[in-house]
Design a protein around this nucleic acid. Sequence first.
DNA 1: TTCGTTGCAAACATTTTGCAGTTTC
DNA 2: GAAACTGCAAAATGTTTGCAACGAA
Lengths: 141, 141
Amino acid sequence: MKRLNFSKKRDAVLKVLCSTKTHPTAEWIYAQLKQEYPDFSLGTVYRNLALFKKQGLVVAVANVNGQERYDGVTASHSHFVCKRCGSVFDVEAPGADFELDSRIARRYGCEVERHNLCFYGTCSRCRQEEESGEQTKNVSV
Amino acid sequence: MKRLNFSKKRDAVLKVLCSTKTHPTAEWIYAQLKQEYPDFSLGTVYRNLALFKKQGLVVAVANVNGQERYDGVTASHSHFVCKRCGSVFDVEAPGADFELDSRIARRYGCEVERHNLCFYGTCSRCRQEEESGEQTKNVSV
DNA sequence: TTCGTTGCAAACATTTTGCAGTTTC
DNA sequence: GAAACTGCAAAATGTTTGCAACGAA
């Protein structure tokens, strides 16, 4: 395995991802850091996200409208995805724990690394907006 | 809502999807039907898959290596995704039922349409192949 | 005849990659 | 100094779309 150098920008990518609960896109992370580093590139975001995924520091939780959404919290938890505004937020779902992984592994002879439980529907804010006849607004993520 | 005409090819897309357990890609469905209909187009697959999704006849279960994988079985069940060969297969996971949806809905004030539970890891065949030092082979999906 | 559906290819959007310059060790 | 990392832009990939021809009602 090749050695890993320190990189200020790599650190920054992880820090940005870990300090938000929005489960952002690569583009969003890029936009944040472009302000801080004028010579910052989207490729760096993608390259480092790929690395973090391999390291298990980061996980892709859902693909919303063709864009991958990332999470810096790897402790097992579930997500809700709003099909209207595209927001992704954490939910606590009973039963979806690591026990389940070994259960599946045992039963199907596979090696289970992790699981991902996503609920899809309309978030509470969007439900209200729909009732009052508002236009669809995608959250700025 | 606009009316829906009958279409032989649309039917064929659904039939192909429903008669496989491989959770195929759009491309795979296209390849199957291109044999039967020489003037068959990938756009037709995508257009009809989008329609089926809206109708709730079909669901996208996972994005594997950038390609969406579809399932014609909409009754709630879980999936395992092999990160090595890319295969997707059904698993029975206790607790992940429709009860859970209303539980989440109640707790978070959202409207839950469905959920999707995916396990990620290495399938049993790939585990064996890894042990015997075989090359990675992606399944032809 | 009307309008939904399709083939085809171009357009699109996201992600990946090659390369030359920069940074880390 | 060697090798990892990055910016930049081009390439690659999967998916969507516009349009003219076709097919169903």
